[in-house]
Each structure stands twice: as structure tokens, then as C-alpha cells.
């Protein structure tokens, strides 16, 4: 009798022995997983601190208001940040409406057929095309065939094509999260497809669309390769033509056709100089660029978080 139960005890004891080893492995994995994750985040922090430290001697008002120069200490990023801002303006104006409309088409209008399938495959595929290939497209088509030259317009359009898939995918996802019951309710009241989209689907998915737009622009702002490919000059000691004029019609679009430089190009130019003094400029420009992208991503995360909290289907 007691032999039986002690045998059972022994069996249980054996189970526990193997188990403690397995549980140890389990705990070890948690430690490994956590440390890898924290390690990656630490690298991000190191990267940022390194840029700030290396660039520290350059930070100052002069850095923002000076043009590039042959002397590292007096070189600044005025042309670069103005160029980047204008390019982003063109990119946003082109990519956002087209991206949102394409997404609406795919989600709300497109019939299920081979044609729609082709459009969808195209969008997913474009998201995987290396950015430098967009640069080649722009060089061959925009710069030479359409004769836009190495202008702000050409750069803005290039980056717009580049982020189009990002905007489309993000918009589609947020449109898809609007429940069908809402659409049916509106249709039930006699709304047309466009009215349903405009009055219900779009307002409810604003958060996702905004997030996609900001993420797309944050990608575009750091893109270097495609605009190098279209042949952007990196030594520019003048600003593009002012968009606002003192005479009639007060607005000018001449700036679209001006040559430019941009933040990442300026940084690349400084990094690739053998003179060590320019590394500090590169780091300072990099820190500012990184701040811009991180800030944009932060805003995107915040918006996503806010909208998710606000609307609870």
C-alpha cells in the first residue's frame, strides 16, 4: 500500500526533476529575449547620443542660418532644411490625395476581378521596390523625358511615388477597420456610395490616414539615394525662388524648378569628405534629421494611440 504511493511520489519527483530544467530554459529565454530587445533599444540610444556628442560643437543658430561652406566651422544647413521643407511640401501634396483616393477605390469601389487584383499586386510590389530604383525612374523619366531637370519638383514627385504605397496601405487598413454595420446603416438611409465614403468611412478613419501620411513623410524626409540619383547638387549657396512675391499675383511657382539640396544629401556630402572637421557637421545635421524623423514617428504613434482609444468598435 504505502509502496504504491511512494512509487507515485517517486514518479512525481522524476517529473519535477525534468521540469525544473525545462523551466530554467524558459526563464533563460525570457532573459535572452529581453536583453536582445533592450540591446536594440540601447543601440538606438547610443546612435542618438553619439550624433549629438559629435555634432555638439556645431549646434547653434549659425548652423541653421548659414549656407554650406568650404570651412567646416562656418558651414550650415540653411539651403538643406529649406530644400527639405519644400520637397516635403510637394511630396505631401501629391502623395496624400492620390494615395487616399487609391485606397478608397480599392476598399470601397473596386469590383473583385483580375483588374483589381493587378492593382493590388502592384501596390504591394511597389512597397518592396528599393528606393534607389525610384531614383532611376525619376532620372530617366522626370529629369530627362519630362525635362524637369534636377529640380525641387522632380525630387518631390520622386519621393511622392516612393511613399505612395505606404499611404495606400495605411489608409486601406484604417478604412477596413470601419465596421460594415456603419456602411449598411448609411446605405439603409439612402446614401450613395460616395456619400457613405465621404460622410462616414473617411471621418472614422482619419486617424489611420494621418498616421500613414506622417509615417510616409518621415520615410521620405530621410531618403537620400533617390534624390542623389536624380543628380541633386550638394553645394548650394542660395535659396530657391521665394513662393511669395510683392507684386501681382503675389504667388510664384518658380521655386518648383529651382535646384536644391536636402538634409540627408548635405549630411552624406559631409560624411564622405576626408576632412575630419566635417564629420562634426555631418553629426550635427544627422542629429537634427534624426530628431525630425523620430518626432514625426512619435506624433504618428500618439495619433494612432489617441484614435484607438477614442473609437472603440
Amino acid at each position: 500500500m504505502s509502496a504504491v504511493s511512494s512509487a507515485a511520489m517517486l514518479e512525481a519527483e522524476k517529473l519535477r526533476g525534468g521540469l525544473s530544467r525545462r523551466k530554467l530554459l524558459d526563464k533563460a529565454f525570457v532573459v535572452i529575449g529581453l536583453s536582445i530587445m533592450l540591446g536594440c533599444l540601447a543601440i538606438l540610444a547610443v546612435l542618438f547620443i553619439d550624433l549629438v556628442r559629435d555634432g555638439a560643437p556645431r549646434f547653434g543658430w549659425d548652423f541653421l542660418t548659414n549656407f554650406a561652406s568650404r570651412r567646416a566651422t562656418s558651414a550650415g544647413i540653411l539651403a538643406a532644411w529649406v530644400g527639405t521643407s519644400l520637397i516635403m511640401l510637394v511630396t505631401a501634396v501629391c502623395a496624400v490625395p492620390i494615395g487616399v483616393m487609391a485606397a478608397i477605390y480599392l476598399e470601397e469601389y473596386a469590383p473583385k476581378n483580375w483588374f483589381t487584383a493587378i492593382v493590388e499586386i502592384n501596390v504591394t510590389n511597389l512597397a518592396g521596390v528599393p528606393s534607389i530604383v525610384y531614383g532611376l525612374l525619376a532620372l530617366g523619366l522626370l529629369v530627362h523625358q519630362f525635362d524637369l531637370g534636377q529640380s525641387i519638383l522632380a525630387a518631390g514627385l520622386t519621393l511622392a511615388l516612393l511613399i505612395l504605397p505606404i499611404v495606400i496601405v495605411a489608409t486601406r487598413e484604417s478604412i477596413r477597420s470601419v465596421p460594415n454595420a456603419i456602411r449598411e446603416a448609411a446605405y439603409g438611409l439612402g446614401a450613395t456610395r460616395w456619400e457613405v465614403t465621404k460622410d462616414h468611412v473617411l471621418p472614422y478613419s482619419t486617424g489611420g490616414i494621418l498616421t500613414g501620411m506622417i509615417l510616409g513623410l518621415s520615410r521620405a524626409i530621410g531618403e537620400t539615394a533617390p534624390i542623389i540619383t536624380i543628380g541633386a547638387l550638394s553645394f548650394i549657396a542660395f535659396l530657391p525662388d521665394s513662393p511669395i512675391k510683392s507684386e501681382f499675383p503675389f504667388v510664384s511657382f518658380q521655386w518648383l524648378h529651382d535646384p536644391f539640396t536636402a538634409m540627408p544629401i548635405q549630411m552624406f556630402n559631409w560624411v564622405s569628405r576626408p576632412d575630419q572637421a566635417f564629420q562634426a557637421n555631418a553629426a550635427a545635421a544627422g542629429a537634427i534629421l534624426l530628431c525630425m524623423t523620430l518626432a514625426m514617428n512619435g506624433v504618428a504613434i500618439f495619433i494612432r494611440y489617441r484614435f484607438r482609444k477614442k473609437i472603440n468598435w
Binding site: S5, A8, M9, A12, L15, R16, L19, R22, K23
Partner: peptide, 14 residues
């Protein structure tokens, strides 16, 4: 062996 299956110190995996 009088193991309390839902006892606080008892390992669920066991």
C-alpha cells in the same frame, strides 16, 4: 500523493 492541483505553490506545468 495529495497534491492540491490548484494550490498556489503548485506548478501548473507539472
Amino acid at each position: 500523493d495529495n497534491l492540491n492541483l490548484i494550490g498556489p505553490g503548485v506548478d501548473p506545468i507539472e
